[in-house]
Amino acid sequence: MNIFRLTGDLSHLAAIIILLLKIWKSRSCAGISGKSQVLFALVFTTRYLDLLTSFISLYNTTMKVIYIGCSYATVYLIYMKLKATYDGNHDTFRVEFLIVPVGGLAFLVNHDFSPLEILWTFSIYLESVAILPQLFMISKTGEAETITTHYLFFLGLYRALYLINWIWRFYFEGFFDMIAIVAGVVQTILYCDFFYLYVTKVLKGKKLSLPA
């Protein structure tokens, strides 16, 4: 555990909590892509199956349970409890175009051809692109609520901090995981355009809106 890993995890936690609280407090999931949230629930489910097979640390187990729990709570709010506020007309990204290639790649490029390891690999690849339906939705509507942009910022920041964590671990522990690193680079690159808008607009007190 190093400071980049820890702040990365806390950033991830902040993102998840911000989104859940935003939806809960406003009683609305307008502007939120339910598809991205389902993909994240799928990511956590397939990655954290090792909760059932191996114990790493109390920290590890606790965070995994919180991530999964919050993720399913978010999906429940969007598709069940607050379904009337869900903006499905703008959430039109075709997720099969992500899941099918990602599933194929997980079978072809993995550390070990075992069910748990293939599912872990699938979750790493899927996480790297799971935000695309949300970004697609924002590009379609041309705007995002400020609180939604805070969510996206912390979610993007988390993987960027993990990149520094991986550099740290390579230098000080001689450890590297090529699958996680490459997927993490892809994931972080997808947020770059958003990071630019966040810094130049949202942090200056303006709403995030895209030119028509």
């Binding site: 890993r5 995890d9 991830h12 990655r47 090792d50 097979t53 191996s54 790493i56 640390s57 590890n60 965070m63 995994k64 991530y67 550390h111 070990d112 390891e117 872990w120 993990y162 964590n165 995981d177 090529m178 699958i179 996680a180």
Partner: peptide, 10 residues
């Protein structure tokens, strides 16, 4: 990544 102890990172 490929060790038997599972994945430490989240």
């Amino acid at each position: 990544g490929s060790d038997d102890d599972g994945h430490d990172e989240l």
